[in-house]
Structures are given as C-alpha cells and as structure tokens.
Design a protein around this nucleic acid. Structure first.
Length: 780
DNA sequence: TCAACTGCTCTTTTT
DNA sequence: GAGCAGTTGA
C-alpha cells in the first residue's frame, strides 16, 4: 500500500515526497511547512524504507523539536527509534558528549550560560588584562567574541583583522576566554555550534561516522541559520547531499544573533543541484489578515518575493486601537477578551495571545488580566532557571558534576554566607592561577595559602569537602538525582538561608522544590529508558560516560521552559514576537505599536535592521487565524522615563479598507472634554478615593521647561500611571512589601523620580523611590 | 576583612 | 528591583 499523501496539496506533496538531493522549500507563513517536514520523515520511513536512525532533523527551539517528535511519532504510530530530532544546540551537546575528548574535554563538561560567559569575560578584562571593565563592557566584548565564533573566525584570524581599539581589546580577550573555557571543562552556547564544526574539520573520520549515519538531514526555519550552522550542514551533507531545508526569508528575525539571510537567498548557488519548491498557499489566516500581511512585507527590498494566497474569503476587519497609556491599552485588551468570550461560548482563553516587542511590556498586561481574573501564562521573560535561588542550586550541582567549573564556584563560594569576601576570593584565584588548578582544588588547600586565615581558612576546605562528597555520590550512581539535589541544597545551607529571608524566601524554596521535581522527572525518564535521553548517556569514551547528572544539567542549560510545561492549560498566552514564530492563535493582539518601541529607535540606524523589524511585525500579523488587533498607546513609560508616542509607521502599511479604528474610553473622554487632568477609569477612581483625591505635590517649577512641560509631568505622576505610581499625599497610609505599613511624611522630586519619605511603623523612617518601591495603599 | 548600607545605572529580541 | 561600586562600622 502506497503511503498516503492525499492530505497535502500538490506543492506540499511535491516537497514531502522528494527523495534525494538538496531541496529548498520556500514556505510562506501558515503554509503547512511543519506538516510537510513531518510527512516527509514519515514518507521516507514508511514508503522508502529508510532507517529512522539515519534521519537527523534540526530546529531552533526545543518547543519546535518536541512538537516535531510528537507529530512524527503520531504519523508513524510508533517511537522513531534512533532518529535524532533536536535543536542545533542540543545536537551539538550530543555530539560533544560523545567526542569531546578529542577536543581535550571530558563528557562531564559544563555549558556556560550568558551570565557565566559575561562573568568570565569580565574576570579576564579586569584581572588578567588589568583593563577597565566599564570602558570595555564584558557584555559587548563577549558579544563581539560570540559574533566572531558564529562566523567561524578564530582568535588568530580575529586579531589579524582587528582595527579599532575595541576590536584590539576583543582580540586580546578572545584567546584567553577560549583557554579559560577549556580549563573549566566548559562550553559556551556558541561552542555548541562551533566545536562540532571544528571537530569534524580536524577529524575527517569522525565526520564520516556522523555523515555516514545520517543520510537524511532536515532543517526547519532555515532562514535563521548562521555561518557555523551552515558549515555544519554542508559538512554533514557534502557527500550524500540529502539536505532538505524549509524556510521563509520573510520570517528571518534573528539577524542580530548571526543568522545570515544569505544562507537562504544563496541556497541555489551553494547547491547548484538543488530543487526549489515554493509554498504560497496559506491555510491559517483570513483573507483580510493575509492581505494586510502581504502589504506589510512588500515594503521590504531584500527578499525573494512571495505572495501568499488563501481560499478563505473576507474575515473580520483588523481593529486598530488607540489607548491613553499602557495600562489603558492592557485594560482594553482584557475587556475585549472578556467581551469576546461572552459573545461566543465556544471560545476559550487559550484562543487568545498578546504579543509585544519587549518582555517588559508584559507587566501591564499581566496586571490587567489579573484584575479581570483571567488566567494567563507568560512565555519567556524571566525564566525559571534565571532565578537567583535556582541558579545558586544549579551552580552547586554544576560544581558537583564538573569540579573545574570556576564560574559556578564563584557564584556559590559565599552563598549562603560563610564569611568569604572579595579579598579571600582574589587570593584564592591567584593561588589557583599560579598552579593552573581549578578554584575548588585551591579551596582545599586554603589553610596553606598566604593571607587566608581565620573563618575563611576553615570554611573553604569545608565547602570543597561538601562538593567532593556529592561528586563521589553522583559518580557511583548510588543516589537518585532528585534525592541528591534535595540533600545538596539542604546540607549546603541554601534552604536554611532562604528560610531566614521570610515570605519571599518561601517562594524561592518552592522554586527549589520545583527544580527537584524537574530532576526527578529526568531521573524517571532515564529509568524508563526514554530514547531521547538515553542517547545522551551513550558517550563514546570507554572509561568515562555521561551520568544522569550531566544529562539533567545539559537539559537545564538548553531547555528554557521547565516551568511552563502545560500547553493545554486554558489561559491567555503572552509572549514576545520572537517567541511567537511558528505558533498560531485565533485571536491575536499586537500591543505597543508605537514609533520607537516597534520598530525600536535603534533600528532606524540601519536599513537592514528596519527591514528585520518589519519582518518581525509580519511574523506577528501572520500568527492570527481569525482576528487581529493592533494597539498603541499615546503615552508609555519606557525604563525610567515617560514618552509621548506616535503610532508605529508599520500601521501605515496596513490598508485602511481592511481596518476599523477604535479608541479606548479614556482617550475618547479626554478628547471630548480636553481635560486631561480629569482622568477616569474605575481603577484610578478607586485609587483616588483611597488616597484622598487631588494631587498634593507638583513638579518643581525649575523642571517645567523639560520635555512636555511642568503640567504634563505632574499629570503623569498623579493620574495617568496611577497603577504604577499611586497618587498620594502627606499623611497617606501605605504598605511596602518589606518594610510594612507606614505614613508618608514628605514627597520630593518630580516626574518618575518622585521620592517619598515614609515613617514606617516598625522600621522607622526610610526614603523610597516611588517607581521602584511597589507601594500599596494601606487598607484600614 | 567582611557585611550591610547607600547611591547609581540599567531595560531588545534568544539558544 | 537587581546588580554593582564605593563607603562605613564592627
């Protein structure tokens, strides 16, 4: 019986049943490219009798990899045993786990995250090179190194090309940085892409092993590949040439991290025997939405050029919303969702998504949804593993897995406090550097190091002994991973220290419990021999192999969404536009369509950047199946200051006959009476009542000439951002999250920098910056 | 020498 | 609010 391809249209079928040779699928948004990818995999296995173990499928996010694996499993009706499906980074880890010894690493290596990498860069700039880390910020230096690595430019080649002073500094740091990583038995994110390429280049027989095994290579979101990824693919496919890539140049939004749009534009040049299939039929959106999307992307010059078609006709108009400020905008969105739900009982919260350019925009939307008592989940933003206590616990664990991981050691050496300060650490680092040993090893000898005395001389060997003890436990495999982690956070004193922090510490302890649950999950999957995880256990080395601990840490480093594991939950989704790629929702709100925010101001410097912002907008528009809302606010707080905003120029490219314009009640009211100080809205009104009404302080006259004028400034503080900066006056009773209840004694400053001197009932007088203090009215 | 405190700066997007 | 540098008191 022939494999059934009847669920595909002719172009899709053409692509999915392509057997050998390079193929580029130029797939528009919503054209079913994921379906084509998974169908091709199933077709190869079922119809052509290809061994699943010879298929390698690469994606950019873990989410996409997980979905692809699920779909393949479903369409095969069984586990695709031996097939490798994963992100470029996770595949890199797998390869390195097996073959890192050839690069001088051991399989228990660490993966340094961005913080670790910045920290290491900083130490090199400050301590080794004795340069000023303020002048040469670790972030930008590491960014330059990262870019160089992604272009496969090594330290020597970089140094030859370094011209300006900044590049000269980078050229000094770069080789030291690479050496420090190797000494720490650690890879950074970029290494996970670059090191396999080096490995293959220097060991042709290793490449032959992989290329010989994976006869079919598939890549999703090919437009996002950078130079290193491109070379990796070329290495893998050079001989068999079965490279199947799917992408959309119009959705290239990762230029800033090295994605090279030329990889897709020049695919036919690079692979002259390549076939190209275009998928221009869109199955996702209404005609209205699609027409708008086409108009938007037409404005870009650098593109292959596709025009999406749909069989859907008509569709609801796109709603453009003008709001007074971000709180008003968020409130409007929340109420619109409520209204939609009330109109159609078949709709659920999960049918709605709010998209924005920057993570910080999520806050006001969250507040509005909370107020309306609607469930929501925020994708991205402050991730679980980025939380302080989680990073601390993981640092302990990483040190246990890899005693050479100096960044982990530095993180926890005085957490919880054990009386080890900067001076002690510096002495320790000097000792370690002189002997070429890791910090942890130096800590064992602390008592013998000049200048380390007293408490530190005792605490350091104790810490080292603790780590050694758990390292031994991890190696024998006698203790379950989750049990090990639990005991480690207890015995290290981490939990006790958090307990002493009070309410906030309680939340943090809960997060640690969550982490222990994550460890238990990995342990369980390994015990059940989950094929996906088992693959990482089979390291190539004979004497050393990966342990559950290594597998867990590898996952934590690469999998961002340990804490948002519930795709079925009925909740409104919120995420950045970058995170939205590949997803679809019936109802989509794109918030913050203001000049300077979206597109960001800095994008105006480079035409290419502006085109990338426009592609980002295009990605957002094409997420919508049924209805699209584009909202903007006339005024928004950005960082420490307020900005009057004009609508995004992107809105001009959306044809008027496809849209309807709306204004929030607050905007209407204000323009009707033109009395901006008479702000309305239930929430503000409640605040006004609570705080006794009229504003009781003014911007000092001296600031009146700044920005929009003095009146404006006062108005901003008192009303328009009342949710962030409650209106108050001398004598108001307030509650501070850590200081408790108190009475406002004095108000100084202006604009967003208003400070309040507060006499707290328990802790006395403190001065707080209103913007950050998170004060609540005290209910009495 | 260290912990606690003050004051200052910072906020694009992500593996 | 967080991270960091600089200061102060113990």
């Amino acid at each position: 019986m022939a494999f059934d391809l009847s669920h595909l249209n002719p172009e899709q079928r053409d692509a999915a049943s392509h057997f050998e040779g390079p193929l580029l699928v130029l797939a528009g948004a919503g054209s079913g490219k994921t379906r084509v990818l998974t169908t091709r995999i199933a077709w190869l296995v079922e119809e052509m009798g290809v061994d699943p173990g010879s298929i390698l499928a690469l994606t950019f996010t873990n989410k996409a990899a997980g979905e692809m694996r699920d779909r393949v499993r479903k369409s095969l009706g069984r586990e695709p045993t031996g097939m490798w499906i994963g992100t470029f980074h996770s595949i890199g880890v797998r390869i390195l786990r097996r073959d890192a010894q050839r690069l001088g690493y051991s399989p228990g290596f660490s993966v340094y995250d961005a913080d670790d990498a910045d920290g290491l860069t900083k130490r090199i700039i400050r301590d080794t090179l004795q340069l000023d880390p303020k002048k040469w910020t670790p972030r930008s230096v590491h960014g330059a190194i990262s870019s160089a690595k992604n272009e496969l430019t090594g330290p020597d080649a970089y140094a030859e090309r370094a011209l300006d002073p900044f590049e000269k500094v980078v050229a000094q740091v770069y080789p030291l940085y690479q050496k420090a990583l190797r000494d720490a038995n650690a890879f950074d994110f970029d290494d996970l892409l670059v090191k396999p390429v080096q490995l293959f280049r220097d060991n042709p027989h290793v490449l032959r092993r992989y290329a010989g095994r994976f006869r079919f290579v598939l890549v999703d979101e090919y437009q996002d590949t950078n130079r290193a990824q491109y070379v990796f693919l070329r290495q893998m496919a050079e001989e068999h040439r079965n490279l199947f890539v799917v992408g959309d140049d119009d959705q290239s939004i990762y230029g800033w991290r090295g994605a090279d749009i030329r990889n897709i534009l020049d695919f036919e040049k690079d692979f002259p025997d390549a076939r190209v299939v275009k998928l221009e039929q869109n199955y996702r959106s209404t005609q209205t939405i699609l027409e708008a999307a086409n108009r938007v992307i037409e404005q870009n010059v650098h593109r292959k050029g596709k025009t999406l078609r749909t069989d859907h006709v008509g569709g609801e108009r796109i709603t453009l919303v003008e709001a007074a400020d971000e709180a008003d905008e968020s409130q409007w969105i929340a109420e619109e969702i409520r209204g939609r739900l009330a109109d159609s009982p078949s709709l659920a919260l999960r049918n709605f998504v709010v998209l924005y350019r920057t993570n910080s925009q999520s806050r006001s939307v969250e507040e509005a949804l909370r107020r309306e008592r609607m469930a929501y989940r925020v994708i991205g933003g402050t991730r679980f593993y980025e939380r302080r206590e989680v990073k601390d616990a993981l640092a302990y664990l990483r040190l246990v897995a890899n005693p050479a991981a100096d960044e982990a050691f530095l993180r926890i050496v005085n957490v919880p406090r054990r009386g080890i300060g900067d001076t002690t650490v510096t002495r320790l680092a000097e000792h370690a550097a002189a002997r070429g040993i890791p910090l942890l090893a130096a800590a064992e000898q602390a008592a013998a190091i000049d200048g380390i005395r007293g408490g530190a001389a005792k605490a350091l060997p104790e810490l080292a002994a603790l780590i050694r003890k758990y390292a031994a436990l991890a190696s024998t495999g006698g203790m379950r991973l989750d049990v090990l982690l639990r005991e480690l956070v207890m015995e290290s004193g981490l939990v006790d220290a958090l307990r002493a922090e009070g309410d906030e510490g309680k939340d943090r302890i809960e997060n640690l419990e969550e982490l222990v649950n994550g460890a238990a999950e990995v342990q369980r999957r390994l015990e059940e021999e989950d094929p996906e995880l088992m693959m990482e256990m089979e390291a190539a080395g004979e004497d050393e192999s990966a342990r559950p601990l290594d597998v867990f840490l590898g996952h934590v480093a690469l999998v961002a969404d340990i804490d948002q594991h519930d795709p079925q939950a009925d909740a409104v989704s919120m995420m950045t536009l970058h995170n939205a790629k590949g997803l679809e929702f019936p109802f989509v709100f794109i918030a913050g369509l203001e000049d300077g925010l979206f597109p960001l101001t800095r994008a105006y410097d480079e035409p290419a950047d502006l085109e990338e912002e426009r592609r980002l907008f295009y990605v957002g528009v094409t997420r919508a199946e049924r209805k699209l809302y584009l909202t903007h606010a006339k005024r928004r707080r950005r960082g420490a200051q307020f900005m009057d905003s004009t609508p995004s120029p992107f809105l001009e490219s959306v044809p008027q006959d496809l849209t309807e314009a709306r204004r929030t009640a607050r905007v209407l009211e204000r323009s009707a009476y033109s009395q901006p100080w008479k702000s309305s809205g239930a929430y503000t009104t409640r605040r006004e009542r609570l705080f006794g009404g009229s504003p009781s302080w003014k911007a000092p006259a001296s600031t009146a000439s700044r920005g929009g004028g003095g009146d404006d400034e006062t108005y901003q503080v008192d009303y328009s951002d009342s949710q962030d900066l409650p209106s108050m006056r001398k004598g108001s009773r307030v509650r501070h999250p850590s200081f408790g209840a108190g009475t406002v004694m004095e108000l100084t400053g202006h604009g967003s920098e208003v400070k309040a001197a507060i006499e707290f009932d328990n802790v006395g007088r403190k001065t707080v910056v209103l913007k950050y203090a998170n004060l609540e009215p005290e209910w009495e």
